[in-house]
């Protein structure tokens, strides 16, 4: 037996080699054909002068617009890492000079900004996690035909997307619930997000029902099915809503503005930035605030004018988004399309 197997093995390898060789040849042939096709194609449809002009204009316009979109970020960034003397003279416009990261280091010492950063990060992490978990569970529950008055409850959720009581009733309601000057005000209202629930529901409905049925026959309960079958299969859509949710949490500042009027330690980073941008007096306070005179002096020296501090805080708020952006790209198109299906 062993001999036969030993003999057989090399022969199989040879066969495989033959097959792969054939495949390679085929591929080569295909490539050749393609190249020739393109050659002919080019000869057949030669670009006219009009096409050339159109292409030049089209490329130029798009590339200019793209630069318009990136340049401000680049400009902010080079101004924060260049020598502050040159920045205050307005000499850093295209190329960074006198590279250093002192501005970022001195910002770390200003506890107002650090606090705001921690608030923003924690609300983003906690809020997004809870929102995603809740959307997944509710999205699963509303696909279950057996649920008591399912249609009514689904509409009960969805209808809230189309009306809005308004800012003032919302504020009065939040203060009635004791959610003013309270960190939980960032988290709890966002847990149930009807739009995300619709996305998850649509996605779950596209999963073959047999998967769930077979798990059910094997004796799994709803909870087990949700955890072991639905949750793993939904990861793409959950990633999508997680990204949108996280960006929303990171960027929101009206809730901080309206609800945290007496709790400056709960301001989000965006809210702090808004205050620094609109009220110059805050910058001076920031530079002297809560730090010993040595550090305060250092801060004064390192930031000759408020401008650099404003730029640095802006950069600190932008960087997390730019960091997750490459991962987001894979998912947001999917999210938009799923949303469009539902309208």
């Amino acid at each position: 037996m062993a001999d036969i197997e030993l003999k057989k093995k090399p022969s199989m390898d040879e066969e495989e080699q033959l097959v792969t060789k054939q495949r390679k040849d085929e591929l080569k042939q295909e490539k050749k054909n393609e190249k020739e096709y393109y050659k002919r194609h080019k000869r057949m449809y030669k670009l006219t002068a009009g096409d050339v002009i159109f292409n030049i204009c089209n490329y130029t316009v798009f590339i200019l617009f793209t630069i318009l979109c990136i340049f401000p970020f680049y400009y902010l960034f080079i101004n924060t890492i260049s020598s502050n003397d040159l920045v205050s003279k307005g000499l850093i416009n295209f190329i960074p000079r006198g590279l250093n990261i002192d501005n970022y280091l001195s910002l770390l010492k200003a506890n107002e900004v650090g606090q705001a950063f921690i608030v923003s990060i924690s609300r983003t992490l906690l809020g997004t996690t809870l929102m995603v978990a809740a959307s997944a569970l509710v999205g699963y529950l509303v696909t279950k035909q057996q649920m008591w008055h399912r249609k009514f409850w689904y509409r009960f959720l969805v209808i809230t997307m189309y009306f809005n009581a308004g800012t003032i009733p919302w504020y009065l309601n939040m203060s009635m619930l004791g959610l003013t000057n309270n960190f939980m005000a960032y988290i709890i209202p966002g847990i149930v997000a009807p739009y995300n629930i619709i996305l998850v529901k649509t996605y779950i409905e596209s999963i073959p029902a047999e998967l769930e049925e077979s798990a059910f026959i094997d004796g799994a309960g709803y909870w087990t099915i949700f955890r072991k079958v639905i949750w793993p299969l939904c990861t793409p859509i959950l990633a999508t809503i997680a990204i949108f949710g996280a960006v929303g949490h990171w960027n929101s500042f009206t809730d901080s503005l309206i609800l945290m009027q007496d709790a400056s330690h709960l301001f989000t980073l965006q809210h702090r930035l808004y205050l620094y941008l609109t009220q110059t007096s805050n910058i001076g306070a920031l530079m002297n605030q809560g730090v010993s005179s040595v550090v305060g002096e250092q801060l004064m020296q390192s930031a000759l004018n408020g401008k650099v501090i404003k730029y640095t805080i802006s950069m600190v708020s932008i960087i997390p988004i730019l960091m997750v952006y490459p991962f987001m790209q894979r998912y947001y198109v999917k999210g938009i399309m799923l949303g469009a299906v539902k309208g």
Binding site: N251, I321, Y325, Q329
Partner: peptide, 21 residues
């Protein structure tokens, strides 16, 4: 890729950019 980025920053940051420019 790059024309989509501005959508993901808040209006406060847009204002920060307007301010810088």
């Amino acid at each position: 890729t790059f024309t989509t980025i501005p959508n993901f920053i808040s209006w406060v940051l847009v204002y920060a950019i307007a301010f810088a420019i």
